[in-house]
Simulated assay, not measured.
Amino acid sequence: MKKIIAYFEEVHNELVNKTSWPTWAELQNSAIVVMVASVIIALMVYGMDVSFDTLLNWFYKKLY
């Protein structure tokens, strides 16, 4: 039990004293970067999906 308590004390000490937390402005900038990247990736996946769907529909219409 002493090991478990010591572990949690060390975890608390690390989080409070040794971890550098971002400022509010840094956090907002990071969130904006993640949102923009997510939208760009989603648009790329959507474009690939539409293009493959169009290509396969054209291909199967030619076959049958």
Rank of each mutant, 00 (worst) to 15 (best):
M1N: 07
M1S: 11
M1C: 04
K3T: 05
I4L: 09
I4S: 02
I4Q: 03
I5Q: 03
I5H: 00
I5F: 01
I5W: 00
Y7L: 14
E9T: 04
E10P: 00
E10G: 08
V11T: 03
H12S: 08
H12V: 10
N13E: 09
N13G: 03
N13T: 08
E14K: 12
E14I: 10
L15Q: 06
L15E: 09
L15F: 07
L15N: 09
V16L: 06
N17G: 02
N17Y: 09
N17D: 03
K18S: 08
T19N: 03
T19M: 03
T19V: 12
T19C: 02
W21C: 02
P22D: 00
P22L: 05
A25R: 06
A25V: 02
E26P: 02
E26T: 04
L27A: 05
L27T: 10
L27C: 05
Q28F: 01
Q28T: 03
N29C: 01
N29F: 01
S30E: 09
S30I: 00
A31K: 05
A31D: 08
I32G: 00
V33C: 05
V33K: 14
V33P: 00
M35H: 10
M35F: 15
M35P: 00
V36S: 12
V36K: 12
V36M: 08
V36C: 01
A37H: 05
S38F: 13
S38R: 03
S38I: 04
S38G: 13
V39Y: 11
V39T: 08
V39E: 05
V39R: 11
V39P: 01
I40C: 05
I40D: 07
I41L: 14
I41G: 02
A42R: 02
A42F: 08
A42Q: 01
L43Y: 07
L43F: 13
L43V: 12
M44H: 04
M44Y: 08
V45F: 12
Y46H: 10
Y46K: 12
G47W: 09
G47T: 14
M48G: 15
M48D: 15
D49T: 15
V50H: 11
S51F: 11
S51P: 01
F52K: 10
F52E: 08
D53Y: 15
T54D: 10
T54M: 11
L55Q: 08
L56K: 09
W58C: 07
W58Q: 09
F59V: 13
F59S: 11
Y60L: 14
Y60N: 12
Y60M: 12
Y60V: 12
Y60D: 13
K61E: 14
K61R: 13
K61M: 04
L63H: 07
L63N: 07
L63E: 05
L63I: 15
Y64D: 11
